[in-house]
Simulated scan of single mutants.
Amino acid sequence: MSEAKKVNGYTTFQDGIRSCLPTVLGYLGIGFSFGIVGINSHLNLFEITLMSAVVYGGSSQFVLCGLLLANTSITGIVMTVFLVNLRHLLMSMTASPYFREETLLSNISIGSLLTDESFAVFSTAVAQDKHFSLRWMEGLNITAYITWILATLLGGLVGNFISDPDKFGLDFALTAMFAGLFLTQFKWELSKNTKKAISVVVTVGVSLVILLYFVSSSVAVIISALLGCLVGGILDDK
């Protein structure tokens, strides 16, 4: 690795913290929203914080609250949350080749704390051919993890004062953040390879719409993402 490339990269834990900062406001907003939704789903503050620490998945935690309100069975809740979080398997498989020289424990840690947002930051670093280290990835993931737990805790503390979270648009916070991350990533890919970026987006969009008529939304998202990856791999000019 050349010295010039190392300078244009991320090597320390502090670099990981700095790389996470652009997404911190998103974590705070979504986590705060979840804390409020959790309280209004009849969860107490301890249960909300424990769920954030153990489940650690924004979309799956919102879904879980809805299932609890609908009195869904434990089996149904477990299977639904598993399907919603199944995309993390794809993200972990994508990230793991870049850390082959690290220990198994380190790779498990990376995969366990990887989120949509931290994966987007990681993907951007890869796309820009940045040099990065395990310490950088740990700083990125741990900062996000702590921020999420604190945000949901704060949301839970004020949840009793907001009886209708939807009234303030808090249910849209997660969607808004994903949209922002997507636009940032798409803009970068578009500048590199217009044909590839547009082809992947069209493939995912069209396949998702079609699949929603035949399978559940979670399965449709996974399959359409795999199809998008396939098209992107075929069109990769490297």
Rank of each mutant, 00 (worst) to 15 (best):
K6D: 14
F13P: 01
Q14C: 12
R18W: 06
R18C: 04
C20Q: 14
C20G: 13
L21P: 03
T23D: 14
T23L: 15
V24I: 05
L25H: 05
L25E: 05
G26W: 06
G26C: 10
G31D: 04
S33H: 02
I36P: 02
I36M: 13
G38N: 09
G38P: 08
N40M: 10
L45A: 03
L45M: 03
E47T: 04
T49E: 04
M51Y: 03
V54S: 05
G58M: 03
S60K: 03
Q61C: 05
F62H: 04
G66C: 10
L69H: 13
T72R: 07
M79F: 09
M79A: 09
T80P: 01
F82M: 15
V84K: 02
L89E: 05
L90P: 05
L90D: 06
M91S: 13
Y98W: 10
F99A: 11
R100I: 12
E102I: 07
I108M: 13
S109Q: 11
G111I: 00
L114S: 09
T115Q: 04
T115K: 02
S118H: 03
S118Y: 01
F122N: 00
F122M: 07
T124D: 12
A125Y: 11
V126P: 03
D129R: 08
L134H: 10
R135T: 06
M137K: 01
G139I: 02
N141G: 09
I142F: 05
I142D: 01
A144R: 00
Y145K: 00
T147P: 04
T147W: 03
W148H: 06
L150M: 13
A151G: 01
L157P: 00
V158I: 13
V158Y: 09
I162E: 02
D164P: 02
T175I: 14
T175L: 15
M177F: 12
M177K: 10
T184L: 09
T184N: 11
T194N: 15
T194L: 15
K195I: 08
K195W: 07
K196Y: 09
K196N: 12
A197S: 07
V200H: 00
V201R: 04
V201K: 02
L208D: 12
L208C: 15
S217A: 14
I223F: 06
S224K: 08
L226S: 04
L226N: 00
G228W: 02
L230M: 07
K238S: 11
